[in-house]
Design a protein around this nucleic acid. Structure first.
Length: 424
DNA sequence: TCTGGGGTCCTAGGACCC
DNA sequence: TCTGGGGTCCTAGGACCC
């Protein structure tokens, strides 16, 4: 049996932990730049505010209903997530952290437990130690655990817990799950299934498996098998190293000059290098992209992306920053109002991989340059101790393109300055 | 009449997840 | 005025190898 523990309206719940006056009120959390809704309280959902909806189109609804609006505060959410996951780790031997607000727990070995009451204990424990409300779904496969969790969330009578054990319980659960709500079935595939008359998870479970394999490929075939109780997906205890790392932002205002764009790209490259070091990886390719808003008139629209291969895989801030800047120069076109840019690094190699091939001509930065590595370690150490951004390369700067965050809550758990402000 | 069989690597595009 | 950010996997097709 697998348990899926999923936090309710996670970002909203994080804000509520520190502002209890938000309880019972409609609350939304906005994406970077205060653009779209990325989390909604149940009250906000009831007002018809859609996930991903652009906030400016709903300004009247927000005002009339006195909706509490918060800018995204990812350092806070990341820290709260870590606390939830730590609590869950103590409740089951094997846990897979699936996303910022979800974890799968391996319930093998709990066969003699009353799973309903154990799940209720998990909810209570997480609530007590972190303040975050969660729902628990338990079933014989991960996909069925997702189905169970959805039912636990949707039906107040379940008290936040749904265990699917018997064939009858599973059958009933599948019948009440629309096909578009199945984990792994997105918009395209649900449309395709619906035209075949496959409307619910029960229909998909019973569908012709040859047809499913042909049109939904192995991924869809796996979903079908999992719905029928055959586990195809295991708990992944160790997260595999990332294959690509991306840092990108929309800008708070239009950026026109190459100089300003360079500051943004330098900052993103620096962030990518830091994330690489944290992963103990090096990247061998650097991609830079930038462009105008996609909602711009066609003649004023521009989107450019370009990739280069580094002479050696690297996670050095200076190396990646120089590379990204070179790529950007080839991408930049004068006369556009740039609204977004990003840096993506890929072609990862483990940091400790021995025997990296040397250059035939030997003029590039040596891949294992000890002094550079020590410099990066010192930089990371200072930033860890005194806060992010305490020390950085001069080229990194956010003055020109800083995203808008007008409703930002304090960093209650990760920034001394904010904690002191709260107390005052 | 009759033109093999078995592979790898890379890329682009399309789907999906949170 | 105003529309997020960060990932993964799969398939098909083309190029190459012996």
């Amino acid at each position: 049996m697998f348990a899926l523990v999923d936090c309710n309206n996670f970002y909203v719940s994080c804000e509520r932990v520190f502002s209890p006056s938000l309880e019972g009120r409609p609350v939304v959390v906005l994406s970077n730049n205060d653009g779209c809704f990325i989390a909604r309280s149940n009250e906000a959902k009831a007002l018809g505010l859609p996930m991903g909806g652009p906030a400016f189109k709903f300004r009247e609804v927000l005002k009339q209903n006195r909706v509490a609006v918060h800018s995204a505060n990812f350092p806070l959410y990341g820290d709260m997530s870590a606390r939830v996951m730590q609590t869950l780790s103590a409740l089951a031997p094997d846990i897979e952290v699936y996303s910022i607000d979800e974890a799968f727990l391996d319930m093998t070995g709990f066969s003699r437990f009353d799973l309903e009451s154990y799940a209720a204990t998990m909810r209570k424990t997480v609530r007590r130690t972190t303040g975050i409300p969660v729902c628990v779904g338990i079933a014989p496969t991960k996909t069925l655990a997702k189905v169970a969790n959805r039912i636990a969330k949707k039906h107040p009578a379940s008290n936040g817990v749904c265990v699917l054990r018997t064939a009858e319980a599973i059958k009933a659960a599948l019948a009440m799950t629309p096909v578009e709500d199945i984990w792994g079935i997105g918009r395209q595939w649900s449309r395709r299934l619906q035209t075949q008359g496959i409307m619910t998870a029960a229909d998909l479970a019973a569908a012709d498996s040859t047809w499913v394999r042909k049109h939904l490929h192995v991924t869809g075939a796996r979903v079908q098998a999992e719905l029928n109780g055959t586990p195809c997906l295991a708990i992944e205890l160790v997260r595999p190293a990332k294959q690509s790392i991306c840092t990108s932002r929309s800008f708070g205002k239009c950026v026109g000059t190459l100089d300003e764009l360079q500051q943004a790209v330098a900052t993103f490259a620096g962030k990518c290098a830091y994330k690489l070091r944290r992963e103990h990886s090096r990247a061998s390719m650097v991609t830079v992209f930038t462009g105008t808003s996609p909602f711009e008139e066609p003649e004023a629209r521009y989107w450019g992306t370009r990739t280069i291969t580094l002479p050696f895989p690297s996670n050095n801030t200076t190396t990646l920053l120089n590379a990204a800047n070179n790529v950007l120069s080839g991408l930049y076109r004068e006369g556009y109002g740039y609204r977004k840019a990003g840096v993506l690094v890929s072609g990862m190699v483990p940091e400790d991989q021995p025997g990296t091939t040397l250059s035939l001509f030997g003029e590039e930065e040596s891949p294992g340059d000890r002094r550079q590595q020590e410099l990066m370690a010192v930089m990371d150490g200072i930033n860890h101790r005194y806060g992010r951004g305490t020390i950085r390369l001069a080229a990194e700067d956010d003055q020109a393109w800083k995203p808008q965050q007008e409703q930002l809550s304090p960093h209650y758990t990760t920034d001394w300055a904010d904690i002191i402000t709260v107390r005052a």
